[in-house]
Amino acid sequence: MRVGLFVTCLVDAMRPRIGFASLRLLEAAGCQVVVPENQTCCGQPGYNSGDRETAKTLALKLLDEFETCDYVVAPSGSCAGMIRVHYPDLFRDDPTVLNRISLLAQRTYELADFLVNVVKFDAAPGHFAGTLTYHDSCSGLRELGIRDQPRALLATMPGVTVKEMAEATTCCGFGGAFAVKFGELSTRMADNKCRHIEAAGVDAIVAGDLGCLLNIEGRLRRRGNHTTQVLHIAEVLAGNEGDD
């Protein structure tokens, strides 16, 4: 099974270890992983800011790079959601591309979803020990129905105890450009999230999207919380060795 790893622009730039953790997990699950080297961005920033044309151009670029893969997997619910849900919408009036893009969309998965529902993976090699709480990132949850998958994977890890926090499905306030354009509002939303994380009394907050994690970690630290770890689900599942 040939799986194309879409690293995502945020992981590429900010925390490559998430990309490598995803790679290890996919390989551990028996996939042949390819990482197209010219990949950049799925186009979501443009799409959500009203720049449909740029989004279309980048969608076509991604299509060319990943079309030969059996599956496309991204360690992000929002990028996977962009491809899976919104790419077909971008080309709804262009039947020639629509067919190709829809086929790609159907083969695109968020990492935890792919591990659970496609390759039925249940042997996470990570060795996290402690309590954690899972934040349901918006696009993953509401566009792709990702809620039980990451929890199921975490449940297979002997050292992990998952404690649910209040309002786990409420947005953390990231929202891409929103976080800068409406900084105060975004900060308040992040702060609410941090309060729930702290009330859950856990060692780590885990999510499937780096955008949320940067936002949450940024607010936690500014609040003076330097102890709660902020981790991507791939990091927890795969462990962190060797990539720092």
Binding site: V7, V11, D12, A13, M14, R15, P16, R17, G19, F20, V35, E37, A179, V180, K181, F182, G183, E184, S186, T187, R188, A190, D191, L214, N215, E217, G218, R219, R221, R222, V230, D243, D244
Partner: peptide, 22 residues
Amino acid sequence: ASGWTAGRDMPAPQGKTFRELY
């Protein structure tokens, strides 16, 4: 990006990109 940093820190990037490391 003061909209971000007025109320939040920004975790610094790891240093090298995934692309480079890969």
